Simulated assay, not measured.
Amino acid sequence: MAALAILCDGVTVVEGRVAGHDAGATLVRRLQRLFPGAALVGPRAQRADGFDVVPLELIDPRETVVITMDVVNAPAVWRTLAAGGAEPRIMNFVWWNTSQFTHPVQRASLALSCALFPTFANSLRTATEVREIVFALTVPQLAERARIDWANLGIRLDHVQPREEPAVPVVLYPAIRLSERKDPQLFLDVVERVHKRTPIQVEMRLQESHLISERAIRLSRKDWAWVGPLTATREDYYYRLARTTAFLATARDESYGLEYVEAMVAGAIGVFPDRPWARAILPEGYPYLYADASEAEELLVRAVTEPAACRTELDLLVGGDFVGWLRSRHDDTEFEDRFAAAVARWFPEG
Rank of each mutant, 00 (worst) to 15 (best):
S328Y: 01
A296Q: 11
D292E: 07
A296W: 13
G270I: 12
E298T: 03
A268V: 01
V271S: 00
M264D: 08
P283T: 01
L289C: 01
V301D: 04
L289I: 03
P276F: 04
A303H: 07
E284D: 15
E298C: 06
D292M: 12
W277S: 12
A280D: 15
D292F: 05
G270F: 15
C310R: 02
A296Y: 13
R329D: 07
L300S: 07
G270V: 09
A293C: 07
R327A: 14
E254A: 13
A309E: 12
E295V: 11
V304L: 12
A268Y: 03
E254Y: 15
G320I: 14
A291V: 15
E297Y: 12
L258M: 13
E262F: 05
A309Q: 07
R311L: 13
R275T: 15
R252L: 12
A296H: 09
D253L: 08
P307Q: 14
E298I: 02
P276T: 15
P273F: 09
G319L: 12
D274S: 12
E284L: 03
A268T: 01
E262P: 05
Y256M: 13
D321N: 14
G320F: 11
D274N: 13
F272E: 04
L258V: 03
Y286N: 08
P273D: 11
G320D: 04
L258K: 10
E306D: 11
A303K: 04
R329Y: 01
L317M: 10
T305E: 14
E262S: 13
V301P: 00
L289G: 00
S328F: 02
G319Q: 11
Y260Q: 11
V323W: 04
R252D: 08
A278N: 04
A309V: 02
S255T: 02
A278K: 05
R252F: 06
D253G: 06
L317G: 11
Y256A: 15
L326N: 10
E313Q: 09
L314M: 10
D321W: 14
E306Q: 14
W325N: 07
Y290H: 09
R329P: 09
T305P: 01
A293E: 09
A308E: 11
W277K: 10
D321T: 13
F322K: 09
L317V: 05
E298R: 07
W277V: 02
A309W: 01
S255A: 15
L317P: 04
A296E: 09
L326Y: 08
P287H: 06
D253A: 13
E313W: 03
R252M: 09
F272H: 10
T312Q: 10
P273K: 06
P283G: 05
G324V: 05
A280H: 06
R302G: 01
L314S: 06
E262D: 08
A266E: 04
E284I: 00
E313K: 05
E262G: 13
S255E: 11
Y286I: 02
S255F: 10
A263S: 10
P287I: 09
E262H: 08
E284P: 00
E284C: 00
Y256R: 10
A296V: 09
Y260A: 15
A293P: 00
E306T: 02
A280P: 00
T312K: 08
